[in-house]
Amino acid sequence: MTRHKIFDMTFASIYPLYLAKVERKGHTREELDRVLTWLTGLDAHSLRAAQSSDMTLEEFFANAPALNPNAELITGVICGIRVEDIEDPLMQKIRYMDKLVDEVARGKKMSSILRGS
């Protein structure tokens, strides 16, 4: 299986891009952090630590306590691919995260983004 370059990107390099995207659309860091903690099971302190470390996305998800059980309810297209059809578990988690960030930026209701949680 081909190793994707995105696996080795740092969370610290991705987070500012996510933040800029949601803020550009009139949303907040708190909304972004809420969906990221919901997805990963990380607390706010651990999320902040990941933002200032050289942790890769692979390490970020490996160190996350647990993927939210409702993450499998995340569906739709990101980068032209249906997230529910992605076979590589790590790539699917990364694309789940991308999808949630897109939903925050689009102004979707938080209860919908968090799949009823």
Rank of each mutant, 00 (worst) to 15 (best):
24 R>Y: 08
30 E>H: 08
18 Y>I: 01
114 L>D: 02
62 A>M: 09
5 K>V: 13
46 S>I: 01
13 S>C: 02
7 F>A: 12
82 R>L: 15
106 R>M: 10
36 L>C: 04
34 R>P: 00
27 H>T: 14
48 R>S: 09
35 V>L: 01
23 E>T: 15
69 P>R: 08
111 S>R: 15
18 Y>E: 04
103 E>S: 10
110 M>P: 03
20 A>K: 11
33 D>W: 00
102 D>M: 12
57 L>V: 09
75 T>D: 13
32 L>R: 10
57 L>R: 12
60 F>L: 05
111 S>M: 12
13 S>W: 04
66 A>S: 10
49 A>C: 02
1 M>Y: 02
107 G>C: 01
3 R>W: 09
57 L>G: 06
53 S>H: 02
106 R>Q: 09
99 K>T: 11
26 G>F: 14
60 F>H: 07
109 K>T: 06
104 V>S: 05
84 E>D: 15
77 V>Y: 13
50 A>D: 12
33 D>M: 06
11 F>L: 10
30 E>F: 05
115 R>F: 00
117 S>K: 13
34 R>E: 14
32 L>K: 08
113 I>N: 03
113 I>G: 07
94 I>N: 08
81 I>P: 11
1 M>D: 05
37 T>Y: 05
16 P>F: 08
10 T>H: 05
106 R>D: 08
59 E>W: 00
34 R>G: 09
47 L>M: 09
59 E>H: 02
87 E>M: 09
43 D>E: 11
68 N>C: 05
5 K>W: 11
66 A>W: 04
37 T>L: 11
30 E>V: 14
117 S>F: 06
107 G>D: 01
42 L>F: 14
49 A>P: 01
117 S>R: 12
72 E>F: 07
4 H>P: 14
72 E>N: 09
61 F>D: 01
40 T>S: 03
75 T>E: 15
87 E>L: 10
24 R>V: 10
21 K>N: 15
110 M>N: 04
110 M>R: 04
35 V>W: 02
56 T>I: 03
61 F>T: 03
77 V>Q: 12
73 L>K: 12
40 T>F: 00
41 G>V: 06
58 E>H: 05
94 I>D: 07
9 M>N: 05
19 L>S: 00
82 R>H: 07
16 P>K: 03
25 K>I: 04
24 R>N: 05
20 A>E: 14
60 F>G: 07
99 K>G: 02
71 A>G: 00
91 M>R: 07
65 P>W: 01
27 H>I: 12
103 E>M: 15
92 Q>W: 03
73 L>N: 08
35 V>I: 14
8 D>K: 13
16 P>L: 04
113 I>T: 06
59 E>Y: 00
72 E>D: 10
104 V>Q: 06
13 S>A: 10
60 F>W: 04
41 G>E: 01
1 M>A: 10
39 L>Q: 08
38 W>V: 04
116 G>D: 14
57 L>S: 06
64 A>S: 15
88 D>Y: 02
62 A>R: 13
64 A>F: 01
63 N>D: 14
116 G>V: 02
113 I>F: 11
6 I>C: 10
70 N>Y: 09
28 T>H: 06
43 D>L: 07
